[in-house]
Design a protein around this nucleic acid. Structure first.
Lengths: 255, 255
DNA sequence: CTTCGAGTTCAGTAATACTGGACCGCCGTG
DNA sequence: CACGGCGGTCCAGTATTACTGAACTCGAAG
């Protein structure tokens, strides 16, 4: 996926976070667990862990290390700027639980989408994307739901800035085609994504619009094409999403 | 404060987090802001920031960098293990707002205290402690409130493991003295801290006890000795804390 | 058009992160 | 009770890489 490595990247910082992410994924791990996962010596992993532990970024429990509470503070700070998170989090969680799929909350920043929250239902697909990840807006249902409710000039500016690279053969990569698609999304109030970003993955998204008629973000449900078919894909899930969005929109207004 | 540096510490990991903490503190900063704050060259800071930005751990907004949303995910994970956080957070925030002081939430882990949450009121003192920080239990009101409600054998074990080093001349450093002090705390239901950990800082704490009579943590209010005097110190704040603790305890039981 | 300030890029050098081996403590087994 | 194995921790040398400083770019202001 064209992951050009910045030659000046501080690799130690990257591995530091790789370790933390791995700890998160495994829900805690021992030194040797991590030596297997990373191509590093036992002692090196150990140095990382003790360093992080001394500063509270990881917690040691017997021989297993876990993500530390100090990250709560940094994360909470980032979150503090995003009021929508507080309002929509529980609803997105519930959406994931009820559908069993992967539910997402995306906001727009500087012309790109940022995942604010993500909840895994029982059958949810695993993806390699992460909270805080920035994605293009033109090639996802979430992004389209947002773009459809931005002024045309703004959308033009975003495309000028970021372009519209194709990631699969279903990606819309023509500007006019995108605009007519967005019009359709605006009319229907729902955006569909048929493997436009990822092969085998379909997605349904609806915008979150406040009472000033400006879009605050979008929520979606995504899952394997096999389970996203016919009425479920075209009617059931869109209806569900619209009702959840409605609840969130009410909470935005009255809090 | 006896900050022995581990000679094998991964310094790059430490500076990485120093930068993030600084970004948090300043609520965003530019490259040059940070060059002044740290003894590093502009290019080096820049390398850190771009590396972190590429991975979503910081966000760039024009020329200022901010703590990124990806940390939300890691922090949220750490928090997930601590149910008390969700339950008590809002109450502690309110406590800080109402008193204007610094309000804290501490839990016990492996014989040490860990700050789960901290809220600054308008007049709150600045301290150098952080969320996730581990502290001794014997020399703070918060710690004493917890210890007072643990079985004596457990307290003995904790002291055996961690000792009871003195940090100011008011620290209790005798075992018998501690136990008689804890008895008093248990009877009164409140722990006071008169500059036992930090010069000039007084603190009032009460335990959070669930319906199994086991202690889940403690909350406190702390501030300068000048403002913590007489009735306010001895009656007003203790009463306030007890009522807040009561609310939290009810929420623990009925959620 | 010029100047200034700030961010970014790059190649060389100094610092430091990684390795492998030794040590230690623990648990289960002979 | 001794032994063996496993995992975590410590340490010194080496190779990687993070840091520097100068040059470049860009935008805003004069």
């Amino acid at each position: 996926m064209a992951d050009q490595q910045n030659p000046n990247a501080v690799k130690t910082a990257q591995t530091t976070f790789s370790i933390l992410e791995e700890l998160k994924e495994r829900n805690g791990a021992t030194v040797t667990d991590l030596t297997d996962a990373f191509d590093l010596s036992k002692s090196s992993i150990h140095n990382y862990l003790t360093t992080l532990e001394d500063d509270g970024y990881v917690m040691k429990d017997g021989n297993t290390y876990e993500v530390g509470l100090r990250l709560l503070d940094l994360g909470g700070h980032a979150r503090h700027r995003e009021r929508l998170y507080d309002i929509a989090k529980d609803e997105v969680d519930e959406l994931a639980a009820e559908t069993g799929e992967l539910a997402n909350l995306l906001v727009e920043q500087h012309g790109k989408g940022v995942y604010l929250h993500r909840a895994h239902g029982d059958d949810a697909v695993k993806t390699d994307s992460y909270i805080g990840q920035r994605v293009y807006l033109h090639n996802t249902a979430l992004g389209n739901a947002i773009l459809a409710h931005l002024p045309r000039a703004r959308v033009e500016a975003i495309i000028d800035q970021h372009g519209m690279p194709a990631t699969t053969e279903n990606t819309i990569s023509d500007r006019d085609e995108l605009f007519s698609h967005l019009e359709q999304v605006r009319e229907e109030g729902v955006a569909f994504d048929d493997e436009a970003r990822l092969k085998g993955l379909r997605c349904v998204a609806v915008p979150i619009v406040n009472n000033n008629d400006t879009v605050e973000g979008a929520i979606s449900v995504s899952g394997p094409t096999s389970r996203f078919q016919n009425e479920r894909f075209r009617e059931e899930l869109p209806e569900k999403l619209k009702s959840v969005a409605n609840v969130i929109e009410l909470n935005i207004t009255y809090t």
